[in-house]
Computed example of a mutant assay.
Amino acid sequence: MSTEHHMPLSGRVAVVTGASSGLGEATAELLAERGAKVAVLARRADRLAALVERIERRGGTALAVAVDVTDAEAVRGAAERTRAELGTADLLFNNAGVMLAAPITEVRADEWQRMIDLNITGLMNAIGAFVPQLVEAAADRGVADLINTSSIAAQNLFPNFAVYTGSKAFVSHASRNLRTELGAQNVRVSVIEPGIVKTELQGHVDHADSNAWLDDVFASQEVLEPGDIAETVAFLAAQPRRVNFQQVTVMPTFQAN
């Protein structure tokens, strides 16, 4: 087997936000396994340190940057550190997010703001900090990738999840619009809309009806694993530079909507 086939992302510099668990953690490990140098960003420094240790133990290269993506200045600092220590980023998996649920009549404004801050503002902070590097890398190497994590909730209707679904609709539509700006500069923009995935995300939900629904799904159905989404990210990044999958919906086989 050729090195190129075994390590199709060799020479790439990838950045993963929300890397301390779930989709981000699994994706960082897989991208490193496929040859990319990976900067892992999240708030939990201990989890990032353990992740970097695992990657390095397997022969990969990783950099842990403890950062809250809602802090724009801190994310810009993370971008500068990534360039200085790993090189110019040419792949951003923009993944940090939170899912909370409650009937709108409960007026949990603090939870609404938390989702807006992380799922929308945090997403845009990472885009603002790293897109200049993606554009630069694309000019030099012919291609770069911006891959955003949305959700099937961006398309469908889920009671008690109005603000979460709205935030993910922003991610999906913003991604489609970003292609109109960045595609001409050889930066591919993709949005992944997963169905139900087994991650920590569901653990943040504290509304009884929503918890009962999620618990029933996890007890009775085979849902997606984080590694399934990691494989999707790696697949997108390994495409010929002429190929851009604009939107990828990944669903558990059982889930209809």
Results as ranks from 00 to 15, higher is better:
R47E: 15
A49W: 13
A50H: 09
L51D: 12
V52A: 09
V52L: 04
E53A: 15
R54Q: 10
I55N: 01
I55A: 03
E56N: 03
E56P: 00
R57H: 12
R57T: 15
R58C: 06
G59R: 03
G59Y: 04
G59D: 08
G59V: 03
G60L: 07
T61C: 13
A62W: 09
V65M: 13
V65K: 06
V65F: 12
A66G: 12
A66F: 09
A66K: 07
A66S: 14
D71V: 11
D71W: 11
A72R: 13
A72W: 02
A74V: 04
V75H: 06
V75M: 01
V75Y: 08
V75T: 03
R76L: 12
G77K: 09
E80M: 08
E80Q: 14
E80W: 04
R81I: 03
R81D: 07
T82M: 05
R83C: 03
E85S: 11
E85H: 06
E85G: 05
L86K: 06
L86D: 03
D90I: 06
L91I: 15
L91T: 11
L92N: 06
F93W: 11
N94Q: 11
N94G: 13
N95I: 12
A96G: 08
G97I: 03
V98N: 05
V98R: 00
M99K: 11
M99S: 15
A102I: 05
P103K: 12
T105G: 11
E106I: 03
E106H: 14
E106P: 08
V107H: 13
R108T: 10
R108I: 10
E111D: 15
E111V: 11
W112M: 08
R114H: 10
M115D: 11
I116P: 07
D117P: 06
D117H: 07
L118P: 00
L118G: 01
L118D: 00
N119Y: 10
G122V: 02
L123Y: 08
L123S: 02
M124Q: 14
N125T: 10
N125Y: 01
I127G: 08
G128I: 05
F130A: 00
P132W: 05
P132C: 02
Q133P: 04
Q133V: 01
V135R: 15
V135F: 04
E136V: 00
E136C: 00
E136K: 02
A137E: 00
A138R: 00
A138E: 04
A138C: 04
D140R: 14
D140M: 04
R141Y: 08
R141T: 15
G142M: 10
V143Q: 07
V143A: 13
A144K: 04
I147E: 07
I147N: 00
N148L: 08
N148I: 02
N148D: 08
N148T: 09
T149Q: 13
T149I: 14
